[in-house]
Every structure is written in structure tokens, then in C-alpha cells.
Design a protein around this nucleic acid. Structure first.
Lengths: 262, 262
DNA sequence: CGCAGGCTTGACGCCGATCAAAGGCGGTGG
DNA sequence: CCACCGCCTTTGATCGGCGTCAAGCCTGCG
């Protein structure tokens, strides 16, 4: 949990300048012109990646930086006064973490690595200064990011209130699939870096239910799932489930499925 | 609900400059210095308030302005591909509406007046220009607003996934109560401008359930509710319900309720 | 090799959705 | 001003999805 502060040059051995960053083209900073890019060197990378289970920050930590995921994956969660925890999202490369801490000055959720992962740290004070100097408003980009985050959240809320359990899981798998696609990885076969327990919490279901649902989707020949490896066999079918297309014809669908099974 | 007019320019009859606005002190624009305030005259107010049921904007409408609620109340909702609607929030004076439309360039939800209401319109292009000229970054304020919005959403998500129906309604009433308090109105007695139907949708419940729950809270002597008028009698008790403090002693509570009913 | 923690599977019961119908309020027109 | 109508709300009865409890299984790690 060692955070690097704005000592610009001294600890350069732990840093990689943005100019040299391999993933720069897909980065928030990508459109910076060369002049500004020098400033961007201040956006550092932790040389040593974080291990599974390590926290990027905890709920209540002072907010001072934004983080850009370079590799790996994270889960974010909130704990309320009663100690109840709610997983609020899963995050992959190029996602920005920590934005929600800007206003209260403290992080309102914790973020934990689901596997070996690395991030870029963007000290927010510096970020603000650079964005004021720059014509191309970084702030605007940030808002864009925030905006799409709000969209995702709304989508999730919809999932949680309007969908039956099976729809939620189907929808969840499709979301992950979409994420993989956007990152130029296979949308049909991927690894779920999070535990069943996290999925259940995220979807507002019991672990046992999630487990049963994975099986049910397999029985319907929509996916093949073994542990964390998921193979989507029938993408359309999964979409149909997610959309709740079996509501009236439930009996019929079930019959078909049973026929398919044997 | 009479607005004060100014004789500043030709179209002034439809507008009120920010300088003259009665609610300016609690406004997003409040910290503007005098020089900037002149620009702020471009932030117009609809002279004719909106009527109940009127839409401020629809989902998919081109995003061009932010709106600041001067009076009244609104509900926001999202409709997905399948036509399913989800109420995403209720909004009162000083709330900002429309932020979520910035990135996609279109509004991702619709906003509808729950009663006679009025708003200030903040053309976003202008907003950006002013914020670039200004040292005190308006953008920063906007982000603050967005940030607190995200916090609320997270809170709501928690409510929807982790709470039983009774907790959700108690929590909802407490949220409204808090809103009233923040607006210097009584947190103990207020009017709910939205229909039961909207509350149910918002909380992810059936209308019938909401209706029954209102009654159950009354039976427990926590509130007095008649139609849209709500009186919170036992704030602590309501907090206890919201926190789920009866989980272990559920049987006892139920017995008490049954005894009270007959 | 054995243990711990995560995952699966089964049995059961409750919460809340759904269906059905009656009651009340507000708006509109006679 | 009253009467009617439609929509919102309440109330009752029934049913099923999913949470809960309990046990057994798998897998990775020490």
C-alpha cells in the first residue's frame, strides 16, 4: 500500500514516463501533444505490480490520485454503517479508478486487486494544473469518463431491480463479454477473475443461487463454465435470457431445454 | 411562484439574470465574481413554470443544457430496449439535472415534473467557455456535483440489493426526510410529490407491496401516512427498521404487529 | 498429503410478486 | 354543483422464486 507522491525526479527508477508507455494509445492522456507529454511524465507507474487481494485504496482513505488500470483487474465495493458490503463494479485495463473520491475528498469505496495487476497513478492536484494549462480540457475527458460510469451504474441498477436472477447472471456475463471485446480479447471465451461470492454480492443474489444458475445456463447449452473459465456457446440465446424473452412461453422453453438435455 | 422581471434587454421578459435571482446563494453559480456574473445572465429561467407530467427532456434528446431546479420536484427514469422503465431518482430544488448526457451527447434518461416546477437552463457550451475563462473552475464544481450523485447512486444500489422491502421503504422515507432537512423544511412532516407507483418502481417493489408496507409502518407507530402526506413520528424507530435491527427478533416484532392489528 | 476455503447440490420455508376486486380521489362535463 | 368516470391506492388470497440451512465436493496451497 505504498503510494508514491509528487517527488518528480528522484524516484524515477520506479516510474515509467508516459512517452514510453506501451499502452499509451488507449490511455486517457493519449491525445496530449508532445509539449504536454513532458508534464505527463509525472503520471507514474508502480513498477512492482500489486498482488491478488491487495487494496489500491480503502473506503475513507484521503483522495489524492486517480488511477488508470494498466493490467489485471479489480473489484470495487462499499461498506455501509451496518457493515454490509456491496460490490459495486469490476474493472479492467484502461478503466479509471478513484473518481468518486473527488468531492468528499475521501474515497467512498475500496478497490481491491483480483489478480496480479498494475496501475498508473495520476496525482489529482497535478492533473488539475495540467488540465488548466491545456487547451484540450482534460477535465472534459474526465467528465466523459464519469458520464459513462454513471451510465453503467444506471444499467446495473436496472439489472438489480427489474431482472430475475437468471436474467441478471446472463446480463452479467454479457457485460463481461462486452468488456473483453472492447479490450480486443475474445468475447466468447474468457476468465472470470472474481469469485462466485463476488458475483453473487454484485448481483444481489445468494452464492448458492449463482452456482445453480451457472448450471442452469449450461443445461440450456448457452455456456460452458468450469470454475473461472467461461465459454459462451450461444450468444443470442444468452441475450434472449437477459432480455427475459421466455416470460410467457416459459413452459415451452423449458420443454425445449429438457429435450435438448437428453 | 411569480418571477421578478428585469428590463435589461429585449428578451428579458422571458429571463431573469442570475444577479437578481432570489435563490442565488444556494446556486451552482453563487461563487462567481461580479465580472463573471454578467456572463451568467445568459443562464435563463423559463418564465412559465412546467406543469405536472411535463418532460424537461426525454431519453435520447440531444444534450445541450444543464438544468438547475428552482422549485418543485422531478423524477428521472430510464427505459431499456425491452421497454422496461426504472425510476432512477427524485429531484428537488437546487439539484442539477442532465449531467449524465454530457458524454454520449444525448440524455440517457428522461426527466418529468411531478408537480408545477421551474428550472434554470444552463447552455452547456456557454458553461464550458465561462468555466475556461474563470479561475474558479466551474468544471470542478460540476465534478463535485457528479461525485455526490455517484455516492447517492451507490447508496441506492445498496438499498436495492441488500435490503428487505420494509427496510427499503424506511430508508426511502429517511432519504426524503434528509432532503427536506437540507432544504430547510421540516424533516418530520412533508409531502411526497410522487405516486406510489413511482416509489414502487424506484425501490424495485410491486405497488401493492409498497402500499402494505406503508400500513405496516403505521401499525408500528413509526409514521402517519395519508396519501401523499407523511408524518414521521418515530425517527429513531424508522432508522432501526432501515438498519435491519429486527432481524433476530423478527418473530417478536411480527407478534407485536399482529397483536396491534386486531 | 491434508487442510481450508471456495464451490456445488439438495431440502425447505418465507417474502414479496401476481391476480383479483373494491374503495377513494380528482378531473371533466352536464 | 353534482355525477360520473378513470386512475391511483388499498386490501385480500395464492403461489413461486430465491434465500437459508446443511452437507458434501473440489482445488490449490502449505
Amino acid at each position: 500500500m505504498e503510494l508514491i507522491h509528487s517527488g518528480i525526479n528522484i524516484s524515477a527508477i520506479n516510474k515509467v514516463s508516459c512517452k514510453q508507455c506501451q499502452t499509451r494509445k488507449s490511455c486517457l492522456m493519449a491525445e496530449f501533444d508532445e509539449g504536454e507529454a513532458n508534464n505527463a511524465e509525472c503520471f507514474v507507474t508502480h513498477e512492482k505490480p500489486m498482488g491478488k487481494g491487495q487494496h489500491l485504496f480503502l473506503q475513507g482513505d484521503k483522495f489524492q490520485s486517480l488511477y488508470l488500470i494498466r493490467s489485471g483487474s479489480f473489484k470495487s465495493s462499499i461498506t455501509d454503517e451496518t457493515g454490509e458490503r456491496q460490490v459495486t463494479g469490476f474493472h479492467f485495463s484502461n478503466d479509471i479508478l478513484g473518481i468518486d473520491g473527488i468531492e468528499p475528498g475521501r474515497h467512498i469505496r475500496e478497490v481491491e486487486a483480483l489478480e496480479t495487476s498494475s496501475v498508473c497513478t495520476l496525482p489529482f492536484q497535478l492533473f488539475k494544473e495540467v488540465s488548466l494549462r491545456s487547451n484540450k480540457s482534460l477535465y472534459e475527458k474526465l467528465i466523459c469518463n464519469v458520464s459513462s460510469m454513471m451510465f453503467k451504474t444506471s444499467h446495473l441498477m436496472m439489472t438489480l431491480t427489474k431482472m430475475k436472477a437468471e436474467q441478471r447472471l446472463a446480463s452479467f456475463l454479457l457485460d463481461i463479454s462486452q468488456s473483453m471485446y472492447e479490450r480486443r480479447q475474445s468475447p466468447h471465451e474468457f476468465k472470470l477473475p472474481m469469485a462466485r461470492y463476488d458475483i453473487a454480492n454484485y448481483l444481489g443474489l445468494a452464492v448458492e443461487t449463482v452456482s445453480r444458475l451457472f448450471k442452469r445456463l449450461e443445461d440450456q447449452k448457452l455456456i460452458v463454465a468450469q470454475r473461472h473459465r467461461v465459454h459462451i456457446v450461444d450468444m443470442d440465446g444468452l441475450h434472449r435470457i437477459a432480455a427475459g424473452v421466455y416470460l410467457d412461453s416459459k413452459m415451452i422453453c423449458s420443454e425445449i431445454n429438457y429435450r435438448q438435455i437428453r
